[in-house]
């Protein structure tokens, strides 16, 4: 049983890297990174035909946004071009506390109402919804003393009791009242 003097047999492992590279590139190309992120929204419950509740909202508490079929904006009666400006306006409206007679009484009463046309593009709708929700997230984040990004993380994960506590505290008497009306048919689609 004399051992061969030539030493340990070696398998040439240089092509191994090539094979691994090939597999790697295959997976890189076929991968679709899961994009499960977006704007969340809770639809209102099914309307009850028998006893429709009559809700009266004071004119001053309403912040009206209208979108028409030509993708033009009408915010509080004024035509506007930049949906990004809505964010600041929403914040001023909600955090008015009765100072300006045209803006809300208190954050509790403030309602953001927006209505699209059947011909409005989805892109603009998302932009407006993004601005309005962003304004609310900013205000909640301020109340909770965190950044906007952190707030959204907290709000997405309410299973954690600590997150739940922060969330409930910031949202107390401060509802995110976004009312999205059924689109009108004027203007065609």
């Amino acid at each position: 049983m004399a051992r061969s003097k030539k030493g340990i047999p070696v398998i040439n492992s240089a092509p191994m890297a090539d094979i691994a590279f090939l597999l790697l590139i295959f997976f890189l190309v076929t991968t679709t990174i899961a994009s499960d992120k977006g704007l969340s929204l809770l639809l209102p419950p099914k309307p009850d035909e028998e006893n429709k509740p009559e809700i009266k909202i004071k004119e001053r508490n309403m912040f009206k946004i209208l979108l028409n079929s030509a993708d033009r904006l009408l915010v509080e009666g004024e035509p506007m071009n930049d949906p990004g400006k809505i964010r600041k306006m929403v914040k001023e409206h909600v955090l008015n506390y009765g100072k300006d007679p045209n803006k809300s009484d208190s954050p509790k009463d403030a309602v953001i109402s927006f209505k699209a046309d059947r011909g409005t593009s989805y892109e603009l709708y998302i932009k407006v919804l993004n601005s309005v929700q962003g304004a609310y997230y900013d205000m909640y984040a301020d109340r909770a003393g965190v950044t906007n990004k952190k707030w959204r993380k907290i709000a997405s994960d309410l299973g954690d009791p600590e997150n739940r506590r922060i969330y409930d505290k910031a949202r107390k008497d401060f509802p995110m009242a976004i009312s999205i009306a059924e689109p009108s048919k004027i203007g065609g689609s």
Binding site: S35, D36, K37, L39, S40, L42, L43, G119, S189
Partner: peptide, 29 residues
């Protein structure tokens, strides 16, 4: 898709309300 009009989206939303599936997520990037 970006170019879809709100008419179709709201029709879908009405049906979802009818079906009592009220939690929505508009997937965006």
């Amino acid at each position: 898709d970006k170019d879809v009009k709100m008419g179709l989206v709201s029709d879908v939303q009405l049906e979802l309300r009818e079906a009592n599936a009220r939690k929505l997520m508009y997937t965006t990037i």
